[in-house]
Amino acid sequence: MNDNLKINTVNKQNVVCFYLAGQLDAHSAPLLENEIEKVISNCNKLVFNLSNLDYISSAGLGVFMSFIQELRDNNGDIKFSELNDKVKNVMDLLGFNHIYDITNTEQEAIDKYSN
């Protein structure tokens, strides 16, 4: 049903890395919401590797906004890495760079948790 977004998660150094591939829109947003719900009961340090994310709309960005407060209240966070230009433009438009750590590489994002 939600076949326009693929989500994989990998644990690395006590951080859960999400690999999103495809399109994050109003259709696929509930799928991502479910996946984040599952993960945050065990781990609240998340990195989203967006190198294969081709598209994002406000419905997709809203998913991150809905978890960020709860995560930060519990010493966790959401960090983004490896954005393509298209996704970066949308995030810049909404000032996401002021709210979130956005790094070039996934490793930089992971390292920020241990600093």
Partner: peptide
Amino acid sequence: NMIEYRDEYRKGGLGIFIMKS
């Protein structure tokens, strides 16, 4: 108000703003 939006981590309400922009 983007400052309030960011400080309060609001969800939603940005679609029309994106569209207009």
